[in-house]
Write a protein that binds this DNA or RNA. Structure first.
Lengths: 208, 208
DNA sequence: CCGAACATACATACTGGTCGGTATGTTGGG
DNA sequence: CCCAACATACCGACCAGTATGTATGTTCGG
């Protein structure tokens, strides 16, 4: 009947969803508690305060999502470009997902200027993401499936920036096709990262 | 002594700065009033409520900034690529500016999912921005200073997304060099938009 | 041209709701 | 049996909004 770890997990998950939808400051603790079916006593038993809850959401939930969606697929990929295209194209563009945007970027944008703890944590996740991308690209260069004349670090930053930017626009315009177009653009960009004499011939098919 | 228009302008400016720093919901009306040296009576005389004040900040202050920084330079530019590079390189990367990020994107990210009025207004400014970019690129194609094989609308979306993405990362990492690197990447991208047989020869200088 | 009548442009004080946090109980499990 | 794991009730700060008062401009009849 009593299950502390489960209670903690439920709180984290509900807090993540609420904060994802309403932002950290806009999240109401009682709303989170109501969703979990637990009271403040439980919450303040597992977390010191609202801030600590937010930190935990970042360190555990959001970091885990990033790991699952980006780090893990890139770690054991024979060709990083193919892996990235797969990630992009499997990009969850459900309407509800577009309305709220990227949880990591949301947190970062809202809290970075206000709280150093949030800033460091979001920056850490972004760094991990960036590192995974750069490493995968470098490994791809070593295996000659990625062009040698690109800078992995710079390319990684670019991919993250453009991807987050597209998500932001889609969120504002509340339009999935916006994001869909962005993903297409990025996929086309990724194709240009293949070596010139690649076996794949599906490069440079400019439409319209 | 009494100057209604000036009072309104002061309120708008102070509200813009406060909302830029703390977000809309995080902004305290009394803080704004204290900065202006005016009381609530004045504010509620000029604006129906906090929401209306936020709308006015978007419609007037932020729209004006966008107009001045992007629309106007692009309107009367002989070469859109040169104009864009100039805008990027004159990009204000003061430390304080980096900490808070882009006012338009901040507003959009915070309020789009919560308030349709904010969403429409931010989307309208983004649309104007996008339209100005696309029009300038199309005009550049007509004058043969921009490659014919690119889609102006798609390129415009890409530029906005990437630019906003870089600003977001710089804000999170609290690092100007992040944004500086992004701007360099975008400038290099812009150079690739020139026609192949362009007079300019400074294309494709890849640096580390 | 002037002053009463009215509207505009503010100031001051207060209210009410929201929400994070706390103090204090109660119960279940090892 | 005792401490972790919760529940309940309440506090207090913050803050948008309001009610009301006041001073400054504007208009218009005489």
């Amino acid at each position: 009947m009593r299950d502390p770890v489960r209670t903690r997990e439920s709180l984290l998950q509900a807090a993540f969803e609420e904060m994802h939808r309403s932002g950290f400051r806009g999240s109401d603790l009682e709303t989170i508690l109501r969703k979990v079916g637990v009271t403040k006593g439980a919450m303040y038993h597992h977390f010191d305060n609202k801030e600590a809850l937010g930190y935990a959401v970042l360190d555990e939930v959001i970091a885990a999502i990033t790991e699952e969606k980006w780090l893990s697929p890139l770690r054991n990929a024979e060709n990083p470009i193919d892996a990235l295209i797969a990630i992009f194209e499997s990009g969850s563009l459900k309407p509800e997902h577009i309305r709220v945007g990227c949880p990591l970027n949301n947190m970062a944008q809202e809290m970075s200027p206000l709280d150093e703890g949030f800033r460091k944590r979001t920056a850490r996740v972004f760094s991990a993401w960036h590192g995974a991308l750069a490493t995968a690209l470098r490994e791809g260069q070593r295996r000659s499936v990625v062009r040698q004349d690109i800078d992995p670090d710079e390319t990684a930053s670019f991919l993250i920036a453009a991807y987050e930017g597209y998500i932001s626009l889609a969120k504002c315009f509340q339009d999935a096709s916006q994001l869909r177009g962005g993903e297409k653009t990025l996929v086309r960009y990724l194709e240009t990262l293949r070596p010139e004499n690649a076996d794949r011939t599906s490069q440079r098919r400019r439409s319209r």
